[in-house]
Amino acid sequence: MKKWIRIIIPVCAVMVLIVACINLGSIFMEYNRGVQEYKNLQEYVKEEHPQIPARPEEEDDFLVPEIDFEALKARNGDFRYWLYIPALEVNYPVVQGADNEIYLYRTFEGETNSAGCIFLDAGNSPDLTDRNTVIYGHNMKNHSMFGSLKEFLQNEELAEESPYFYLYTEERAVRYRIVSYYTTVSGSDTYQSVYTDEEYDGYLKMTLQKSQYKGYQEEFTEGRPDMVTLSTCHGKAGGTGRFVVHGVVDEIREWE
């Protein structure tokens, strides 16, 4: 009996190792497919192009890429914007489904993948006219999608050195200035709708009280500029933890 035990235990260990390697290989291949798909989509976004008139100042730091919106819409009718976060090199299309489940595990091209897609909350207006627009993305281990968003937490100077992110629509380019970021949980007040000036003031106060960002200045939110909230998972996989970044409209430019 002892002889058989000495044989069975190593065999079982080898089988477990083989299964683990197969699973890891499958996960790696899935991650790679997702990364490659979105890398291919970036071919529709070229380097800066003078589609928007520059400001009179000699130096203009407003980033303006050339984007083939028609081609992207042809590939996916749910396409709404292109999102760019320079500090993190986040560079992805944003879609909007009929609900918030559709793109959790479906890529821009419609493939089943744990990376899913960056997507706009189904309840938000797609024309960026809401007081607070929420955009979701997975916290991927390979830092794709919103996996790098947590770098704002890890490096306090990052948002101060590069405080902007952009949403490019067919009509305009909108630059947002980061005013707050923090950890929260799903279903918290962070995800409430904002309609009135009074609600806006209360919401802004709440985000600033929770914020771990030290670069906010009151002048950033004068006039109650519309807000965009970027949201991703945080902490243990499958948990309720969330990490959010709030930005307010800093500048808008119309395409020529």
Score class of each variant (00 low, 15 high):
Y166K: 08
S193M: 08
A98H: 11
Q96M: 11
P53W: 00
S180M: 06
H246L: 05
S211T: 15
Q51G: 15
V35M: 10
A237N: 13
T221I: 04
T190W: 05
K46V: 02
R224W: 03
A237M: 14
I178H: 07
C117A: 15
E111D: 13
S180D: 05
A98S: 12
G123A: 11
S186K: 14
M227Y: 04
N23F: 09
A13T: 12
N32G: 10
H49N: 14
K46H: 13
Q51H: 12
T232L: 10
D61F: 05
I7A: 14
I18D: 00
P53A: 15
C21P: 06
E157A: 10
V134H: 03
H143F: 13
S211W: 08
T107R: 01
E156K: 15
D197A: 10
M1N: 11
Y84I: 06
E101D: 13
Y213S: 04
R55A: 15
V174W: 04
I18S: 03
L149S: 04
V95R: 00
L104T: 09
A115E: 05
A173H: 03
L63M: 12
Q36S: 12
K150W: 10
S186V: 12
D250Q: 08
V248G: 01
D189Q: 07
D99P: 03
Q96T: 05
P65T: 14
V16W: 02
P163Y: 03
D130L: 00
N100K: 09
N124F: 02
L230Y: 05
T107K: 05
V185G: 01
N100T: 01
P65A: 13
E218I: 07
R172N: 04
R253D: 01
R75V: 09
L83V: 00
L230I: 09
Y81R: 07
F62H: 07
G239K: 12
N124S: 11
V19Q: 13
V245D: 03
Y200R: 10
M29I: 15
M145I: 11
R253E: 05
R33F: 06
V244M: 00
E254Y: 13
N124K: 02
S114W: 07
L41N: 02
F119Q: 00
Y213E: 05
A20H: 07
I27V: 15
N91L: 08
K2F: 08
L128Q: 05
Y38C: 00
I85P: 02
I178R: 00
W255L: 07
